[in-house]
């Protein structure tokens, strides 16, 4: 289970996150939405332990994977990138690349990919390993309709295999409706609404 109590984060006198209470049950899929600067990334980074809250308590599983908004393409091929820290999962990597229609690019240098291709590669890199909590920061921001559909399919398959909790941020209502069952709207760092989709 994921739980936040009285969590606050302030940057230079500006409160970017102020969550009195938030509870996400194990296995739930939650979409965070809201305008730029509403606190979506801050919330995800706090859950990923990349950022410390200034106050409050955060309870989250240790086994967390986080896909940043601007993922990095490491040197080497696309396949090398997927296999970073997971050398023994070559078969799974190839299957995932196939699912996200990246097979043809497997031997290409990862740093030559387009923004959308890089986003799909970054998702492959995350989905190759199991976790209890999956955090995705705008995973379809650079993707077209087909790419978004592929990501939804890959996510659904991953969730069925791992039964993990998923928290993702997005500006796309259609993607949120497909990938999550609960929608949290953030505004100026506060939860404006929270309900099922």
């Amino acid at each position: 289970m994921v739980e936040l109590r009285s969590v606050k984060k302030v940057y230079k006198d500006r409160t970017v996150l102020d969550v009195p209470q938030l509870r996400i049950q194990h296995g739930e899929s939650v979409a965070l939405t809201g305008a730029n600067g509403s606190g979506k990334t801050t919330l995800l980074r706090i859950l990923a332990r990349l950022l410390r809250a200034d106050s409050g308590t955060v309870t989250a599983p240790q086994d967390v994977l986080y896909l940043p908004q601007h993922p990095y393409a490491f040197r080497g091929t696309v396949l090398d990138n997927v296999l970073i820290g997971a050398k023994d999962r070559r078969e799974q990597a190839l299957a995932l690349l196939e699912t996200l229609e990246l097979s043809a690019l497997a031997a290409k240098p990862a740093q030559s990919l387009s923004g959308g291709e890089l986003q799909k590669l970054a998702l492959c890199r995350v989905l190759i390993r199991p976790c209890a909590l999956l955090l995705l920061d705008e995973p379809t921001a650079a993707l077209d309709t087909n790419g978004t559909r592929l990501v939804c399919d890959a996510l659904a398959r991953y969730k069925a295999q791992t039964d993990c909790t998923v928290v993702l941020s997005t500006h796309a209502p259609q993607f949120a409706a497909k990938a999550a069952e609960r929608l949290i709207v953030l505004c100026d760092g506060r939860i404006e609404s929270d309900g099922s989709i």
């Binding site: 986080y66 940043p68 490491f74 970054a122 995350v126 976790c131």
Partner: peptide
């Protein structure tokens, strides 16, 4: 920063 964030996100 992007290298670290990506790598930490992967649990390395």
């Amino acid at each position: 920063r992007p290298i670290i964030e990506t790598a930490r996100g992967l649990g390395l």
